[in-house]
Amino acid sequence: MQKAEQFPELQYRDLDQQREAAELGMWIFLTTELLLFGGLFISYAVYRHTYPEVFAEASRHLDTVIGTVNTGILIISSLGMALAVYGAQTAKRKRLLFGLIAAIVFGTAFMVLKGIEYYHHYLNAEFPGLRFDYSVPDAKGKQVFFFLYFAMTGLHAIHLTIGIVLVCIILYLAYRRRFSPDYYTPVENAVLYWHFVDIIWIFLFPLLYLIDVHK
């Protein structure tokens, strides 16, 4: 199995060229992902400009503690992925497996906490589309805020879920010893994807959770 992967596909001159192409392809894909989120970020900017006070008020309904803890969790999961690459590059199999498992565990923890938050918003009738109280003051701006909150964190959560599934597959392949310092492109690309999802969250966190919390 491992041997077969050592040869480049027909259209490539050598493995290096193939690896470079795969990496370039991944970066271009991340570009499209960035612009996908970009559409939501610009909507956020527009509506925060339209409803500044309402956004600040609505932001106080989010759980800052969970938000902060989740940020930390995601950063640590990213560390796990970084260590996985290191393990793959240096043929340290344990490091590779450990890193991947850490990422899966912390990624799942993030999702669980996120789910708890979502559930609380549902109970508080702050979930536009499912349960939302339109009788509160400034319901419109609040509705837009919570819609954007769910759209942005929801899209992020979808990406993270895909990431977890992806890492599970990588973990299986790593367990079957499919990677070597010569060939670890799938690990590398999964890591790029994971870090990208992480970066999105790093921006979501202050934008959604921390609007004027000092008031």
Partner: peptide, 29 residues
């Protein structure tokens, strides 16, 4: 294309869940 994808997704979500990101009666533009 990704920006088209997200804007159409928002239209679909707004339509299915009756939320307002573009509908002015619900606060959108």
């Amino acid at each position: 294309t990704p920006v088209l994808a997200i804007s159409l997704t928002l239209i679909a979500v707004e339509r299915v869940f009756r939320v307002g990101i573009f509908d002015p009666t619900l606060g959108g533009d």
